[in-house]
Write a protein that binds this DNA or RNA. Structure first.
Lengths: 217, 217
DNA sequence: TATCAATTCAAACGGTTGTTTTAATCGTGA
DNA sequence: TCACGATTAAAACAACCGTTTGAATTGATA
C-alpha cells in the first residue's frame, strides 16, 4: 500500500479521542493485532500514554470501540439498502443480484472511501475475524447474527427452490470470500495490473456476479 | 471447541522438537498470534525456554516451521490428486467438480484428521492469512502462487468459455470461502445441530458444490 | 569405563508491555 | 480574575517479552 496522507493525526481539527481511534485502526490494519501496543498508538496519535486509558479504560475496550464505530454504520447501510428493495413491491419481486449487492457493495465501497478511513477499517475487520480473542469474536458474532438472518430470509424469498440450509451454507461461503477480499490477501498479480480504485470497483462487480452464480444452482 | 485430549505433549514418544512444534500450533490455534509467547510454548511442551532457541533459532523461525511442516504435505496431496485426474485421459476430460475436489477436499479432510493435528493446523493457517506480518505473508504467497496457477490452468481446460481473468477472480473467492470455513468462524448455528465430523464432511460437500456453481456461469 | 558431542536446564539480560499514580495544564462559567 | 472540572502529561509500577549465557545432564561411541 502506498504511503497514505495522514488525516489520522490531524491535530487541529480532530479530538484526542478521534485521533486515538484513527491511529489504532491504522496500526491494526498495517501491522496486525500482534504488534499493536498502546505506546505506538499514543505516539502516532500525538498524545500521551495515559490518555488512552483515560478515554477508553483499557486497550481491549479501545479495540472494541474501533470496531463498533464503523460496524454500526456498515450494518445500517446494508439494512437500509435491503429494505429499500422491498419497499416498492410487497415482496418477492427483488431479485438475487440486488440482494447480494445490498450486502456486498457497502463493504467494498467502504474500502474506496479512503477519506473516511474505510479501507483501513476493512483490513481491521478482516483481521478481527481471524483473531478470535473471545472478546472480538463475541462482538462480531453478536452483531452479524441478526443481519445474516435478515438477508437469508430475503434470499429465500428470491430463490424459493433453494433449501434454507443451502442458503445458509452458501451465504456463509460468500461472507468468507468477501472477508478474504476485504483484507486484500492473495490479490497478487491482479491488483498490480490496474489502478487501485479500478481494481476495487471491479472486485465489487466480480464478487457480486460470483455470488449470484453461486446461488443460482 | 471441546477440551482436546493432548497428544501434543506425549513426552514418552515425541521428541522435544516435535512437542514444541505441536504446542506452538495448538497455542496459535487456540489464542492467536497476539497472545503467543515462547514461555507458554515451553510450558505446554514440558521443556525449557532455551530449548526453543536451541532447536529453532528464534520465535519467528519456529512459527515458519509450524506452517511449513504441514503446508508441504497439503500442497503435495493437492498436486497429486490433480495430476491423477489428468493421467487417464490426455487432458480436458476431467470435469470441474473433480478439479475443485482436488483443491478443497485435502484441506477440509485435514480438519478431520484430528490424530495428526490437522484441524488445529487449519485454524493456524486461517489466522496466518490475516496476520500479514511480512514474514508469514511472504511465506504463504510464495507457496500458494504456483499451485493456484496450476489449478487455474486445469479449470481453464475444463471451462474453456470462461475468461481467464474471471477464473482467477472466482478461484480467489473460493479460496476465501475455504479459508474462512477452515477457521470455523461464523459457523454459528449450523455447527451446533450435528456432530462435528458430520458437520465437516457436509462442509466439504457443500463447499465443492458451491464452488462448482460459482464457476458454472 | 572414559570421552565427547548433543541436549537440557536455571538464571539472568535488556527491553517492552498495559496500567496506575500524581502533578501540571487547559478551558469555561461564576 | 478566580475556581473548578476536564483533560493532558511525566514518571513509575509490576509483569512479561525474546534472547543469551554457561553450567549440568544425557546418551552413544571408543
Amino acid at each position: 500500500m502506498p504511503e497514505l496522507d495522514q488525516p489520522t493525526c490531524n491535530m487541529t481539527t480532530l479530538s484526542t479521542k478521534e485521533r486515538i481511534l484513527n491511529s489504532t485502526e491504522r496500526l491494526i490494519a498495517e501491522n496486525g493485532f500482534a504488534e499493536l501496543s498502546i505506546r505506538k498508538i499514543s505516539l502516532q496519535a500525538h498524545t500521551n500514554l495515559a490518555a488512552i486509558n483515560y478515554h477508553f479504560g483499557n486497550k481491549q475496550q479501545l479495540i472494541n470501540q474501533v470496531l463498533e464505530r464503523r460496524l454500526n454504520n456498515l450494518f445500517e447501510v446494508r439494512k437500509k439498502m435491503l429494505h429499500d428493495l422491498n419497499q416498492g413491491d410487497t415482496q418477492l419481486k427483488c431479485n438475487l443480484e440486488q440482494i447480494l449487492h445490498a450486502f456486498i457493495a457497502p463493504a467494498l465501497y467502504m474500502i474506496n472511501d479512503e477519506h473516511q478511513g474505510g479501507r483501513v477499517f476493512m483490513k481491521v475487520l478482516a483481521r478481527a475475524y481471524a483473531e478470535q480473542s473471545d472478546s472480538l469474536h463475541d462482538l462480531l458474532a453478536k452483531r452479524y447474527t441478526p443481519i445474516i438472518k435478515e438477508f437469508a430470509d430475503a434470499i429465500h424469498l428470491a430463490c424459493p427452490k433453494l433449501p434454507r440450509q443451502t442458503i445458509f451454507w452458501r451465504f456463509h461461503f460468500i461472507i468468507g470470500a468477501l472477508t478474504y477480499t476485504m483484507g486484500d490477501f492473495g490479490a497478487s498479480s491482479l491488483s498490480k495490473q490496474m489502478p487501485e480504485t479500478e481494481y476495487f470497483n471491479q472486485s465489487v462487480e466480480e464478487l457480486i456476479q460470483f455470488a449470484v452464480s453461486a446461488l443460482t444452482v
